[in-house]
């Protein structure tokens, strides 16, 4: 697949502090890309470089195979983590203003905004001021302003913070819809379950370095340890447990189920096959639960950061 964004060996220093150290990332067109990392790892710096808010000390960024330039600004929509609106300006007016800054003309902006306001059922906010709205309400307006100019690349930094579950879901659905319509999405968040749910690709940044990136399924494949969750019901649990222990590396179970009397995690060594294990279990017991342990993003995140 073609890359929409190619970050090539980007470094950035702030005085003695290195914010990014030789980071390279490919972001395929049309994907939802998770940008992960602990606080202070350098994610925001990278996002700001993509938005041309800061300039890298070395390295280049390519957008659609072109070196990043000012024309690309209108093709990018950015919802920063620290976001806000003018407190004393009317919602409608400032949404138009922000859209104009992204290169939309006044009338198109007004027209598109009306559509979005209707969609989110907030048309009566048009003449209100931000100080009259709750935080979640203001966030909705900010989301609309981010996506209004139909950018090719959408960058969301913690998009769900400040939303109640219903509105978070609404926003999530809109993001998925925009993605389906062709927008590439970069997602920076600490909510691993949304990464799990939404992202096809991820990159993990820790202490200014990229320590991991690629397709999420591939990464999971690399992180799995050939361990299986096993639960059975057998007349002689002790005997079966001993037999399994003899053949395989077993450990305490990390899951729950019901109707079993023997539960454990079984790790296969290289050369051992899961088919053989299943056959053995079927012969000696009634198999209740059999599932490969696949690490989730959270575990991958913690493991990678701790080992780094």
């Amino acid at each position: 697949m073609k890359n929409l964004l190619f970050i090539d060996s980007v470094s950035k220093n702030f005085g003695p502090h290195t914010a990014l150290n030789n980071v390279s990332i490919n972001i395929p067109e049309g994907c939802i890309y998770g940008l992960l990392g602990p606080n202070g790892a350098g994610k925001t710096t990278l996002i700001r470089i993509i938005n041309q808010i800061s300039v890298p000390d070395s390295g280049k960024v390519f957008f659609n195979d072109q070196e990043l330039n000012l024309d690309h600004i209108k093709q990018i929509g950015y919802l920063p983590e620290e976001r806000g609106l003018y407190p004393k300006m009317k919602i409608g007016e400032q949404a138009i203003y922000l859209a104009q800054l992204k290169g939309m003309d006044r009338n198109t902006a007004r027209h598109e905004l009306k559509k979005w306001f209707e969609k989110f059922d907030i048309s009566d906010w048009w003449n209100k001021k931000v100080t009259e709205l709750s935080k979640g309400m203001a966030q909705k307006v900010q989301f609309i302003v981010t996506v209004l100019h139909k950018p090719k690349l959408l960058i969301f930094d913690e998009p769900f913070s400040g939303f109640d579950p219903i509105n978070a879901n609404l926003i999530k659905d809109e993001i998925l819809k925009l993605n389906k319509e062709g927008a590439t999405v970069i997602f920076s968040t600490h909510r691993m379950e949304s990464v799990e749910e939404l992202c096809e690709n991820i990159a993990l940044i820790n202490k200014s370095n990229k320590i991991l990136d690629g397709n999420l399924d591939e990464i999971k494949k690399n992180f799995k340890t050939n361990t299986f969750e096993v639960a059975v019901n057998t007349p002689d649990a002790k005997d079966l447990q001993n037999k399994l222990k003899l053949e395989y590396e077993t450990s305490a179970p990390t899951f729950k189920t019901i109707g079993d009397n023997l539960r454990m995690n079984v790790k296969l060594a290289s050369g051992q096959s899961s088919v053989k294990l299943v056959n053995f279990l079927n012969k000696n017991s009634r198999l209740i639960h059999f599932k490969e342990v696949i690490p989730n993003v959270n575990e991958i995140f913690i493991e990678s950061v701790q080992n780094d």
């Binding site: 950015y78 920063p80 620290e82 003018y86 922000l98 900010q142």
Partner: peptide, 17 residues
């Protein structure tokens, strides 16, 4: 200071220099 403390500044500088 208003733009900075209301945190709208980052949205704006992502659109204009």
């Amino acid at each position: 200071i208003e733009e900075k403390s209301s945190r709208i500044i980052e949205v704006i500088v992502s659109s204009v220099k």
